[in-house]
């Protein structure tokens, strides 16, 4: 269970992200952040959620919006550590990150996915685990609508960002 206290953070001069309520994200639940471009979804991840997870030493895996930059870092790390794993595309990089998480941590944690085209691969992987993960993701792709059904519960995160919980 992740509990985020009420917050108010200036993202840039004319934009503040704030929540008057305590936000709760439960284990084994998938949450989709909803809002228009520029509403603060990615900023919520970077400025609120991830610092909270780091501060409380909660294990997490973060798929950045510009995932191709993460892939360059992964390839560099693999070159240094000389691990035998071939990263050629988004899918293989995603697989490597998930595999590394499971091999090294093997415990419940949080998966944060900011517009990754391999979302279906990530969710399929998590569904096969024997420990619970909390998943928060952003996607504007129509095909990812299948991860939120009609009974989903929608809650407000801030004035511009909402959160849809899969049930």
């Amino acid at each position: 269970m992740i509990l985020l206290n009420p917050f108010e953070i200036d993202i840039y001069p004319d934009f503040t992200l704030k929540s008057k309520d305590t936000l709760c994200f439960a284990s084994s639940q998938y949450y989709r952040l909803v809002g228009s471009n520029g509403s603060g979804k990615s900023s919520f991840f970077r400025k609120v959620l991830l610092p909270h997870l780091i501060g409380r030493k909660v294990p997490f895996l973060y798929f950045d919006q510009q995932f191709n930059r993460q892939i360059h870092c992964l390839k560099a790390a693999l070159a240094v550590t000389k691990k035998e794993f071939s990263i050629n595309d988004f899918s293989s990089a995603t697989q490597y990150l998930l595999q590394s998480y499971h091999d090294n941590l093997h415990q419940s944690g949080v998966i944060v996915v900011d517009e990754n085209p391999c979302l279906s691969q990530i969710i399929a992987n998590i569904n096969s685990l024997d420990y619970p993960m909390t998943v928060l993701f952003i996607s504007h792709r129509p095909e990812d609508e299948i991860y939120v059904n009609h009974e989903a519960i929608c809650e407000s995160i801030s004035e511009t960002v909402s959160c849809v919980r899969m049930v």
């Binding site: 934009f15 520029g38 990615s42 510009q66």
Partner: peptide, 12 residues
């Protein structure tokens, strides 16, 4: 300062 734009806004 366009680094403050969101991903979608940068693409636009």
């Amino acid at each position: 300062n366009i680094s403050a734009l969101s991903g979608g806004q940068k693409i636009l």
